[in-house]
């Protein structure tokens, strides 16, 4: 089974592009299953279901979605295998920009759009820099110059990725993406594969439901902003220590 992990900022066009791509795969008689991981709510599963393929949804709810994602990969893989999928698409949403869902042995696809601003390729962080394939959407509504500059920024952030222009509305680029997916390797076992980028640690009082503001309510792994030496010297009271 090929395990394809799709990520990207909200509204970049992840679902739209994947729907077009899955249609091409289904036309070739390939068995596809899709799983969507999100935080609180999603309706994307309806779009996938409309294709007539097995669909699963995982909501992280009160948990960090990144950790929730990693903790469920084995089960999602088993679910895809159970349905006899040759290609399992896992679309992630709500992951923070410190995170990357890329896993060794799985093809990782990051979708970002031309409208999101020139600094986005740098801001998106490891989600983009660890991807095998970067899809750039919404190129039809910005100038040629902006496309070129944006793409160059993407290539600076991830020189090794295959970079592809796509259009989620009319499916432009989705046949090429299908080809790239078909060329990727199968993964026989997800257990024992490694995340390409470690996840942020966060075991503090807020993780366990604390809602009050102030140092006296904080315990565990807490990091404070460093305002610099100058600021510290000027302030009458010493700022709270940044020690853990």
């Amino acid at each position: 089974m090929r395990f394809i992990i799709v990520s990207g900022p909200p509204s970049a066009g992840k679902t739209a592009v994947m729907i077009h791509t899955i249609r091409h795969l289904l036309k070739d008689g390939i068995k596809v299953a899709a799983c969507k991981i999100d935080c609180l709510k999603t309706s994307d599963d309806d779009n996938y279901r409309a294709l007539g393929i097995p669909v699963a949804v995982g909501l992280s709810e009160y948990l960090c979605p990144d950790h929730f994602f990693a903790a469920n990969l084995e089960e999602i893989y088993a679910w895809g295998s159970y349905h006899g999928a040759e290609i399992l698409i896992l679309e992630t949403a709500g992951l923070c920009h410190r995170c990357a869902p890329a896993v060794q042995g799985c093809q990782s696809i990051c979708v970002i759009d031309n409208l999101s601003g020139i600094d986005t390729p740098q801001k998106v962080g490891p989600m983009l820099s660890t991807a095998d394939v970067v899809l750039i959407s919404k190129g039809d509504v910005v100038s040629q110059a902006e496309r070129e500059v944006f793409r160059q920024r993407v290539e600076m952030a991830n020189p090794d990725a295959a970079v592809l222009s796509v259009n989620g509305l009319n499916g432009q680029g989705s046949l090429k993406l299908k080809k790239i997916i078909m060329e990727s390797a199968s993964v026989n076992r997800i257990e024992g594969q490694e995340l390409r980028c470690s996840m942020p640690a966060a075991i503090c009082s807020y993780c366990t439901g604390e809602t009050m503001i102030g140092s006296s309510y904080q315990m565990g792994n807490v990091k404070k902003v460093d305002f610099g030496k100058f600021e510290k010297m000027r302030s009458k009271e010493p700022l709270p220590s940044s020690d853990v």
């Binding site: 509504v141 100038s143 040629q144 110059a145 070129e148």
Partner: peptide, 25 residues
């Protein structure tokens, strides 16, 4: 390509932008 649907979306002056584009190439 130049098409009817295209817009500039970057928040920059014309001069800075043209410089940026030229440098990116």
């Amino acid at each position: 390509e130049v098409s009817q649907n295209m817009n500039f979306v970057m928040d920059m002056s014309v001069k800075d932008f043209l410089n940026l584009h030229a440098c990116s190439r």
